[in-house]
């Protein structure tokens, strides 16, 4: 499945590259009409849409990262938001409290994520199925508790880190939504490229073998511990990368951003798209992140029904498992 430079692919790439321009055109057009003709067009704010797209981009990144453990090695990770949290707080604290540059804080966040991925991974190497899922869940919950309680470290109650400075590159502050758009686009491309290359390599084949049958894989000479640890570390690093991005994107972060339901939300994306498929994760994340934003109270639903979106996500999980366990984007096996 090697992608070629077909006109279709070039077209899609161009559209992806020009999204911000298009969004700002909407805004400019609405402004032009309203100032010249005095009519307010019923157009949504392009800048706002762009922000939602960036948020969806973060979820795409996270879903691709979670998919490495859930899809490729077949272990259910219920605590992926833990790595997202580690990335977010590493980068956030380094930048807001120690004045680090983003370009140093982000790699450190990713490294820290990978380290924690290993720390969590090594004791759980021999666990399978539910037991692995429970430990991952407990681990992430503990992290949330720590962030909420260790005020000396975090600087505020409930894990609040405020005023994370914007990213600067060559003296230019990257705080506009189109800055964020290209920023996350580059991170996604990088991540997808690396995970894709990993999947198609010896490592990816080892992961698939482990997923299909651990014992058979081991007897074929695959070093289970090494390949599983690698999967944990890579997956955690991607989660932390997403966290590092979100820290500067949101400016203020709190423990609420990284709770258990966030893990489930990301899992829901992977399951919806189809576990084990990078394309599926991207599609699942794009659908659910958009849906989640649309159903946020005040957009389509009245604000008191904001919680209903989680109800819908729950139903999606149930229905997908019942009728299409392989996911939407994957052809039925």
């Amino acid at each position: 499945m090697r992608d070629k430079l077909t006109p279709k692919n070039i077209g899609i790439s161009l559209i992806i590259l020009l999204v911000p321009a298009f969004m700002y055109l909407i805004d400019a057009f609405a402004l032009y009409v309203s100032s010249n003709y005095g009519v307010m067009l019923p157009l949504p704010s392009g800048d706002y849409i762009l922000r939602i797209i960036v948020q969806a981009g973060v979820y795409i990144l996270l879903a691709v990262g979670l998919n490495i453990v859930c899809g490729d090695t077949g272990l259910l990770d219920l605590g992926y938001a833990g790595f997202y949290l580690i990335g977010g707080y590493t980068a956030g604290l380094l930048m807001a409290r120690l004045g680090f540059s983003y370009w140093i804080a982000l790699p450190l966040a990713v490294l820290n994520g990978a380290l924690w991925g290993l720390l969590r991974g090594i004791p759980t190497l021999r666990l399978t199925g539910d037991y692995f899922a429970i430990v991952t869940f407990g681990f992430a919950e503990l992290l949330v508790q720590v962030v909420k309680n260790e005020i000396w470290l975090i600087g505020g109650p409930n894990g609040f880190v405020n005023n994370i400075p914007p990213v600067t590159i060559f003296g230019i502050e990257l705080f506009q939504n189109w800055h964020h758009y290209y920023h996350i686009l580059i991170l996604i491309l990088l991540t997808v490229f690396i995970t894709y290359r990993l999947k198609e390599s010896r490592v990816g084949r080892a992961w698939t073998a482990i997923r299909e049958d651990e014992q058979a894989a081991e007897s074929m000479g695959i070093n289970l511990s090494r390949y599983k640890s690698l999967a944990f570390a890579v997956s955690a690093a991607v989660g932390a990368l997403g966290g590092g991005f979100i820290a500067q994107f949101q400016v203020n972060i709190s423990a609420k951003l990284f709770d258990f339901w966030e893990s489930i939300f990301i899992l829901c994306m992977v399951v919806l798209g189809g576990t084990g498929s990078i394309r599926g994760s991207i599609i699942g994340a794009a659908i659910l992140a958009t849906l989640g934003e649309l159903l946020r109270g005040g957009n389509i639903l009245p604000s008191e029904f904001g919680g209903a979106r989680y109800l819908i996500f729950g139903v999606i999980l149930i229905v997908i498992m019942r009728f299409r366990p392989s996911g939407l984007a994957v052809k039925k096996a």
């Binding site: 219920l78 489930i264 899992l267 829901c268 989680y310 109800l311 729950g314 139903v315 999606i316 498992m321």
Partner: peptide, 9 residues
């Protein structure tokens, strides 16, 4: 995963 979905719902 279904159980988690039910719990969430």
């Amino acid at each position: 995963i279904t159980a988690i979905g039910i719990s969430l719902a």
